[in-house]
């Protein structure tokens, strides 16, 4: 058994060192893979707050991933065609600035997560899963039937968005941006989880009645957690769109929701670095197994089955004990 903090540090270092080596060896493809892993990990870190810590099995986090992506796509496409998004009642222009895009993606995702949470958190269990899935599918079909931004074909953004002082088209620099964002969000999550909010959320997952008798509303806790969770996954969506310079309705599809969930199950639910480990393994498998066979998902399925049956805490859970947040 390895101490969880040590393991987390190792994972964080590995995710940093691999692309740095690739950069030295001039292997931009590996840097891009690492960037993808970091972004998907971020999406997973978002979902982990709701699913892992809050026990809210959201099967609709693609909603926020897609919203983040489309926020980027819409803002950037208007900026590249020099047409305003709207002129009345007030003028809104597109933008190519990453920080602004991130901020808008976070705000929109948080707002939509709040509304979805408000409705879906009145249900539990399988109904909660279905309500969150329904919202995701609603936006999926909406994005398919919305020709202004590519409809079913998706939408290409020709040049990656800008970040002050950096050349975002250089793979290692863009990786740096994604990695730093991931670390900032993980730091925020670690603080959140050991705060009284995080502890109460954890308690509410175990016994919501007992939480009420100490004066805490589980509904409010879960609503806040779901909102933050959606906002983080939305930010990941915006980065993912920037990585590919392309958005499509697939970002909203339930496959995407499922994949984000798979990162958490592979890596370890309610573990700070669970989604990071999970996303990294997923990318590795996709690359290695995908090279062997087009049907690599079959192998992924088998691995997932083994993890669920024999390593319930995911990768992190099976090699390290849970670290206490105090002491």
């Amino acid at each position: 058994m390895i101490n969880e903090r040590v393991l987390n540090t190792l994972i964080a270092l590995l995710l940093l060192v691999v692309p740095l080596f690739a950069w030295q060896l001039d292997e931009p493809f590996i840097i891009t893979l690492a960037t993808k892993a970091a972004i998907l990990a971020l999406a997973g870190v978002g979902l982990n707050l709701a699913l892992g810590y809050g026990g809210l099995v959201s099967f609709g986090h693609a909603t926020f991933f897609g919203l983040g992506g489309y926020t980027m796509g819409i803002l950037a496409s208007h900026a590249q065609s020099f047409t305003p998004i709207m002129e009345s009642p007030f003028l809104i222009d597109g933008t190519k600035s990453m920080p602004i895009i991130w901020l808008v993606a976070i705000v929109i995702s948080a707002f939509v997560a709040f509304i979805i949470g408000l409705l879906s958190l009145r249900t539990t269990g399988v109904y909660f899963i279905m309500v969150t899935l329904a919202f995701g599918q609603m936006l999926y079909y909406f994005s398919i039937s919305w020709p202004a931004y590519g409809g079913e074909d998706g939408l290409s953004i020709y040049v990656r968005n800008e970040f002050p002082g950096l050349n975002t088209l250089d793979p290692i620099q863009f990786f740096g941006i994604c990695y730093v964002l991931l670390m900032v969000v993980i730091f925020f999550m670690s603080k959140l989880n050991s705060s009284s909010f995080g502890l109460a959320l954890n308690s509410a997952r175990q016994n919501s009645e007992r939480v009420q008798t100490v004066g805490i509303s589980p509904f409010r806790l879960q609503l806040v957690a779901f909102t933050i969770s959606g906002a983080v996954t939305g930010l990941a969506g915006a980065l993912f769109a920037d990585l590919n310079r392309f958005i499509s309705p697939t970002m909203f599809s339930w496959h995407t929701s499922g994949e984000i969930m798979v990162f958490i199950i592979l890596g370890g639910a309610a573990r700070l670095y669970g989604p990071v480990a999970g996303a990294a393994i997923f990318i590795l498998l996709e690359h290695v197994l995908g090279g062997l066979s087009e049907f690599w998902h079959i192998f992924l399925g088998a691995i997932l089955l083994l993890v669920v049956l024999f390593a319930k805490g995911g990768l992190i859970g099976s090699v390290s004990k849970k670290a206490a947040s105090h002491g």
Binding site: S196, N202, S203, V214, K322, S325, H326
Partner: peptide, 27 residues
């Protein structure tokens, strides 16, 4: 509960996956 009712439920019902410190801080 916020009005000042402090319940110690039958069967204890501590949050078993939290530490003692975390149980206390959560409430």
């Amino acid at each position: 509960a916020r009005l000042g009712l402090g319940l110690v439920p039958e069967g204890r019902r501590c949050f078993s996956s939290l530490t003692v410190w975390e149980n206390l801080m959560a409430s």
